[in-house]
Amino acid sequence: MMLKVDDIHVYYGQIHAIKGVSFEVHEGEVVSLIGANGAGKSTVLKTISGLLRPKSGTITFLGNDITHTEAYKLVNRGLAQVPEGRRIFLQMTVRENLDMGAYTQKDVSEADMEEVFRRFPRLKEREKQIAGTLSGGEQQMLAMGRAMMSHPKLLMLDEPSMGLAPILVEQIFDIIREFHASGTTILLVEQNAGKALAIADRAYVLEQGRITLSGTGADLAASDAVKKAYLGG
């Protein structure tokens, strides 16, 4: 088992944001977590990556309890997150952003750098540019390239398609497929339910801090409840 989230409850001050969420991700899977804005999807990811702490419940990653492990220690263990809104370092260059992605590696490997540039030729062209000057799509690519620099076993993506033009959304999902094909397990959080279910082996629906449905991507895409609520009919 790659990741097991067991009955976590997360609070923002007095607000009970996550009310007992459990799910799991197996090695080699693409798992999608879909839900409306404010359902708690990002909160779940941040809790897994250690930026937030659950009040109760446990999170197990590769057999180790990581419920109370600090975020920065998880990168070395093979967990990477592309946060919502990309969160690249806008005042640093493209290359420095990738350097930061490789922070836990002993040396920044040129081969890894070339691999990112091969996947994202645009980034190569802009290698020395300040990341703040990149377009939204390029920033998303940089965020994904940066996450891959740490050789994650599990890559968590938080709304990678947010704010992007349809053609770029296609590209981003192609890249997620590529990452997956090269052996990375994926946990994807998306509002774009159609895309997220199409790519997923399994998926969960999160509503108001609770998981209300789960199943294979295809099953959920075919279910009336999901169609009505998330697929526009």
Binding site: A71, K73, Q81, R87, I88, M92, E96, M100, Y103, T104
Partner: peptide, 24 residues
């Protein structure tokens, strides 16, 4: 330097830096 860059990263975005494996 690696540490210098990490300092700039923390200065710009603490959570993102932490997600890179940098101890804030």
């Amino acid at each position: 330097s690696r540490t210098g860059k990490a300092m700039r990263a923390v200065s710009e975005d603490r959570d993102a830096a932490e997600l890179m494996g940098i101890s804030v």
